[in-house]
Amino acid sequence: MRPRVCLDHAVQIRTAAFTRAGYDGVFKKRPGDKQDGCVILYKNSVFRLIKHKLVEYYKPGVFPLHRDNVGTIVLLQPRDKKVANQKICVANTHLLFNPKRGDVKLAQLGVLFAEIDNIAFRKVTHGDVKYHLVILCGDLNSEPYSPLYKFINRGKLQYDSLTRREVSGQHKGQHLGFLPMPLWKAKMGVTDTCQYVNIVDERRGKKEKTRIRNSKTENLKMIRITRLWKRKMAGRKSRHQNRSVVLVTP
């Protein structure tokens, strides 16, 4: 059976070949002179593209977002009228490889999840936030059952005793220091539940701004993924080392 949705990080996109096969897609190239990036391809006869987001993790002056990795996110609607209301959010990313920089990997995930939270959002009903189905894929440059993997699979991570090397499980050896507390600064604009501050404020309808907890609070030892990731989860270990794929259902 032919695949309906294809995801991978690509050096080149052979547009003509995919078009002839009936596929369309979105591609985010890494900045600078890099030729690789992330692409999501979908079958035109099966899905309609509702919206998409090209994610660039590099944010000038915002530490630790100083690496040029990228991601792509799409919201697809089935063309079959019987299931047309069951939209699907698909995300694909390639995180930083460096085994020593777990802080960068987690910050990149925080941004990706905040973008997914925005794209997959449906509505708020009686205080309960509803989301579309989410599928998360990519090269996460982490070992199965590493803290980074468990963060995605369990929806939370207590990081106050973790070193930068331990996060991805790729490399064991002398540690280069513990993860900072807080893991990221308020300047990043992302809460410890991996949501954009301005988006949360907008949904709450409050004039006052959301506070990102400071390092003195107990909860800052932990980051969480918002309800989108906490309902039903299924994790799959890839046959390829340093690659993990997680399917997430709200």
Rank of each mutant, 00 (worst) to 15 (best):
G32H: 05
K53H: 09
R67S: 08
K105N: 09
I88L: 15
H175T: 15
N92Y: 00
G71I: 00
L95T: 05
T210G: 04
L109A: 11
F151G: 03
K28V: 09
N242Y: 05
R236I: 13
L112A: 06
R236A: 15
P78G: 08
D33M: 08
G110L: 03
K130N: 04
D117P: 01
K207W: 06
T217H: 10
R204E: 07
A186Q: 11
I50V: 15
V11D: 13
G155E: 01
L183D: 03
A107Q: 03
I152E: 00
R20K: 14
S146T: 06
E115I: 06
T19E: 09
S238H: 03
T226R: 15
Y149L: 04
H52W: 09
I88F: 05
A21M: 13
C38E: 05
C38Q: 04
K82R: 14
Y131Q: 01
F178L: 14
D24E: 10
L95M: 07
D103Q: 10
C89I: 00
N153F: 06
V74H: 01
L112F: 05
Q158S: 13
G102L: 07
E166F: 04
S238A: 07
R236P: 00
G205L: 12
I88E: 05
G102S: 09
N69L: 02
L75G: 01
Y42F: 15
V111R: 03
I119K: 01
R122M: 14
L140Q: 03
N92R: 00
D36K: 12
V129D: 07
M233W: 03
R2C: 08
R236G: 10
L133I: 11
Y149M: 09
K207A: 15
D128H: 12
L7D: 02
R224M: 11
T125R: 12
G37S: 10
E202L: 13
K150G: 00
L162R: 02
S244P: 00
E115G: 08
R67E: 09
N98A: 08
D103G: 10
L76S: 04
I199K: 12
D103W: 06
H9C: 12
F63S: 07
L75S: 05
E202R: 10
V46C: 09
V245A: 14
N118F: 06
H66P: 09
L75V: 09
V129F: 04
V129W: 05
M222G: 07
R243Q: 14
S146I: 06
K43C: 13
D103L: 11
V246E: 08
S244Q: 07
S45R: 14
F121R: 03
D103F: 02
N118D: 10
I152C: 01
A234F: 05
Q174M: 13
Q195N: 11
K87Q: 08
R224Y: 07
Y149Q: 04
L247I: 11
I135A: 12
P147H: 07
V46S: 09
R30M: 09
I212G: 05
K150T: 14
D201A: 15
D160G: 04
D8V: 05
K172I: 09
R101L: 12
K156V: 05
V62L: 10
P3Q: 14
A120S: 06
E56H: 07
V124A: 14
